[in-house]
């Protein structure tokens, strides 16, 4: 009887945990891929490697790493973020999406060979990355906040972003250049760019706002103001990447 109670104690909660009926089923994963392409690609990218939303190929997720967590996020969305709920997909399609997302994480990356501590020193020192990027409240406001970048982006993506910032631009962080009526040229990172005005931030952290009629010209380039960091040694680059990968949002604010 004691054994029965023990077993019941273990098995009952396990039975209540939702199981993905389609886990590992190639045909259903393919259906999940079709659904993903329709509903998820605008934010998570056609290869699920992130963009407006996080990279979903890393095997770590912002709201829990279990299948049931992914299912819950798909169904209910994430309050306080841009992620909406997709109850209209129904349970089966949500599980198909979970199965597809899981299939993407099978190709795990090799961890970075560098030292995160050395990378942190480089980030705030020689690299001057903190001049434009914030981590946990410290740093400059011009570029994308990197507090959680280790959850959002893969190692390969981060490597490419450091050495070739134009390879894939973070949406909204484009280069704005205006020439004023006094023929002064000012460039900065976009905050807004519309048919009648622009707001942008210069490297000194100053916010500029102009109506187009006040300007001689007002242009947006789909390029990054970040310089390519090609002068880092391989060891330095690995250290920096180890630090970036370690940024999971668990930084004292």
């Amino acid at each position: 009887m004691r054994l029965f109670c023990w077993l019941l104690g273990f098995l009952l909660p396990a039975a209540l945990v939702a199981q993905n009926p389609f886990a590992g089923n190639a045909k259903e994963i393919d259906v999940g891929r079709g659904l993903f392409r329709i509903a998820c690609t605008p934010c998570h990218g056609i290869r699920a490697q992130g963009g407006r939303g996080p990279d979903l190929t890393l095997g770590i997720y912002n709201n829990g790493n279990k299948d049931e967590d992914l299912f819950r996020v798909i169904q209910n969305g994430v309050p306080g973020t841009e992620m909406p709920g997709y109850t209209r997909f129904g349970d089966d399609n949500s599980w198909r999406l979970v199965a597809y997302i899981r299939s993407l994480t099978l190709r795990q990356e090799k961890p970075s060979q560098g030292s995160a501590a050395a990378g942190e020193t480089l980030f705030w020192g020689k690299g001057a990355c903190g001049q434009c990027h914030k981590v946990g409240g410290r740093g400059g406001p011009m570029g994308p906040d990197l507090t959680r970048v280790g959850r959002k982006r893969s190692l390969a993506y981060l490597r490419q972003s450091v050495v070739d910032p134009n390879a894939d631009l973070t949406p909204g962080f484009f280069k704005i250049t205006v020439v004023t009526k006094e023929r002064r040229t000012i460039s900065g990172v976009q905050r807004n760019f519309d048919n009648f005005s622009t707001q942008f931030m210069t490297v000194d952290g100053k916010l500029h706002s102009f109506q187009r009629e006040e300007l001689n010209s007002c242009e947006r380039e789909f390029t990054s103001l970040m310089p390519p960091y090609r002068n880092l040694s391989e060891a330095e680059l690995n250290d920096l990447l180890a630090y970036l990968v370690s940024l999971r949002g668990e930084v004292a604010q």
Binding site: V31, G34, R37, I38, N93
Partner: peptide, 16 residues
């Protein structure tokens, strides 16, 4: 383009 099986009442777009 993605192959997609028809299920009544479900998305049937053949990709995106």
């Amino acid at each position: 383009m993605t192959n997609q099986e028809y299920v009544e009442g479900q998305w049937y777009q053949g990709s995106t």
